[in-house]
């Protein structure tokens, strides 16, 4: 068995989600190779080589991969796919974007967003926004998988795997990068934070999200939002936690003014400890919360900030 894991990175830093996807790969079992596609991404390759259990790191360092455009990256993966029984990527926006292209070009199905490995061909994944859990067997000889990183522990980093440079360059020439408008924040990344505090429709407007800032600073937390808060235009979509946004599983998740719609619960219910602050005692969020506080958030938040 050999397995290829696609590394998530920004050309400088490897995302810890890749370590989690490697854990999923090790659970399948076999030689695990990590592919780093990017430009000037040698430092990412070095970080990937440290991941415990990785046998080899492949680096494709070329301008064509700088923004990891799906058309180019899928062609690259396809060129080396013959060497692997299983190809895996983390189910973040890069992996979600290009992996189905790889599967289609290989003429195999993709199994998306796996949360457990039962065997080399059988995987567990949530469907219906996590309201049902499906066990799916792949009938293809080659498996293409995306992995929900929050469902796996991160592999360690005490390794020094061999790094091999690939000379493959594929620029499909049908797409180009125009610009990035990335949210600049000193706070931890939502997907990687150990504490997340999220606001919902109860925040009433975008300005009131500032009430979360001081608490987030004191806790070293990331700030998230429910889909209702995003739909209402309070905050940008990259803060959305839920089935259609980011899936998080921090040690502590604090839901403020969030009723607890199915689609939001799908994005955070695997958090270790959930706190809900809501003035409606009937809010469904209380059914999944370890600690619930029935209170007006406009009183509770300043007090919480003061007492931390």
């Amino acid at each position: 068995m050999s397995i290829l894991v696609y590394a998530e990175h920004d050309n400088k830093n490897l995302k810890t989600e890749t370590n989690k996807t490697v854990t999923a790969a090790l659970k399948i079992g076999g030689d695990v190779h990590v592919l780093v596609a990017g430009t000037n991404c040698q430092s990412v390759a070095e970080q990937a080589a440290k991941i415990t259990g990785v046998n080899k790191v492949l680096v494709a360092d070329n301008a064509a991969y700088e923004h990891q455009l799906a058309e180019n990256v899928s062609a690259l993966v396809l060129e080396i796919a013959a060497d692997y029984d299983t190809i895996m990527a983390t189910a973040l926006t890069t992996g979600k974007n290009f992996m189905p292209r790889v599967a289609a070009l290989l003429d195999v199905a993709q199994i998306s967003d796996i949360i457990d490995v039962e065997s080399a061909d059988t995987f567990v994944r949530p469907i219906y926004a996590g309201n049902a859990i499906a066990t799916v067997k792949s009938l293809d000889t080659k498996k293409v998988l995306t992995v929900r990183a929050t469902a796996f522990d991160a592999a360690g980093s005490d390794n020094s795997a061999e790094i091999v440079t690939l000379s493959n360059v594929t620029d499909a020439g049908i797409s180009s990068h125009v610009k990035d408008e990335l949210t600049v924040s000193a706070r931890p990344d939502l997907g990687a934070a150990s504490i997340v505090i999220s606001g919902g429709r109860g925040m009433q407007n975008g300005d009131n999200f500032k009430l979360l800032d001081g608490i987030a600073d004191k806790l070293g937390a990331a700030i998230g939002a429910s889909r209702a808060a995003v739909d209402a235009g309070f905050v940008p979509n990259d803060m959305q936690v839920g089935q259609t946004g980011k899936i998080v599983a921090p040690d502590l998740y604090i839901a403020v003014g969030i009723s607890g719609a199915i689609q939001h619960l799908a994005g955070m219910k695997d958090s270790k400890v959930i706190v809900a602050i809501n003035k409606d005692p009937e809010a469904p969020i209380f059914q999944v919360a370890d600690y619930g506080l029935e209170a007006d958030l406009f009183d509770a938040l300043p007090e919480l900030e003061a007492k931390l």
Binding site: I133, V136, K137, F286
Partner: peptide
């Protein structure tokens, strides 16, 4: 078909927690 659905189960339920009376108690 390229995949076979072996089974579908309900997700694990979270244990119901407790209500706290104040921020002090929560912290």
């Amino acid at each position: 078909a390229r995949t076979s659905l072996l089974k579908v189960t309900p997700p694990a339920e979270r244990q119901a927690g407790i209500m706290v009376g104040s921020i002090d108690e929560l912290v």
